[in-house]
Nucleic acid binder design. Sequence first.
DNA 1: AACCCGGGGGT
DNA 2: ACCCCAGGGTT
Length: 350
Amino acid sequence: MKPFASRVIHWQQRHGRHTLPWQIDRDPYRIWLSEIMLQQTQVATVIPYFERFVARFPSLPALAAAHEDEVLALWSGLGYYSRARNLHAASRIVMTGHPESFPDTAEQIAQLPGVGRSTAAAVAALAFGQHCAILDGNVRRVLARHGGVTGWPGDKKIEAELWCLAESLLPTAAQHGTGAIATYTQGMMDLGALICTRSQPTCADCPLHADCVAFNQQRTHELPTPRPKKPLPERQIQLLLLLDRGELLLEKRPPRGIWGGMWSLPELAVDHDPARHCMEHFGLTPRSQQTWPGLSHSFTHFKLLIHPVQLHLAPRHATPTGQIWLSPADALGAALPAPIRTLVAQLTRD
DNA sequence: AACCCGGGGGT
DNA sequence: ACCCCAGGGTT
């Protein structure tokens, strides 16, 4: 049987993906951007965001010159907004620290905010041909199944074991030549995404099935070991759609935490009275109040039940910092989290 | 409804 | 060295 890496490389050349929008050249900027977007997010979701992002910011200097708000607006709907803030910060670090070129070793790349061991290795391998192992979700699944690794990969011990496996299986420059590492790295990701899927993997098409422990022991359904279940707490909030002469009030979220740095709607505890809140903050009693149907939004550690309330205000006075009045149509161009976008979109349909 | 996913920051 | 946090999509 051919070595593990040889089989992955051969499979990638024949069956892997070669035309993803970040594969058209070997631009480190585009590869880095794609890897950040691909954290926690699937390829099909990323593609349209990637296309819009590089159309607006085609190069690292263009990104570094941008205002954070515009970067966040292009990230709106993609989630995990700290990725966008870190990406933007990293672009400026590269421009100041390495003005001549993008950092080209995994160690240097991993120094950038938002880039950990796996992302750094992916950029180093794909863009610079460095021989370093990645361990993203797809590769984790392939390795856990092939090696028959039992235990939740989020567990530090299991994670360390998988990293060791990943390192040990890399192609060698001597055997496979330069350039093979990029093909291998993409091959491992594509095997996980296309063949070794979470449910109903198509093992018959897998170049690794002959010595795959999970396949041979019919344990693909139980590997990798799933995350331990935890109850999902619920939180409830009211969100205020405050309207004044057709314009909607948006508030900038604090830089950290949920929807950090994004534009949202004024938030109110469920046991508070919206009209009274308007009175206290604007000195005006709303002319009308309308309760909208609730909507649910899931986060990793809790479920958020949103109770929207629409209020029409009498003409306003000053607008404090961190707030802005926009027409609903203009608001849709802002850096809105997904559920806020849903609510604002409803307004534009009236 | 359950499950999946990399990195940062706080403890 | 650990634990908690963060938002979408898919199954």
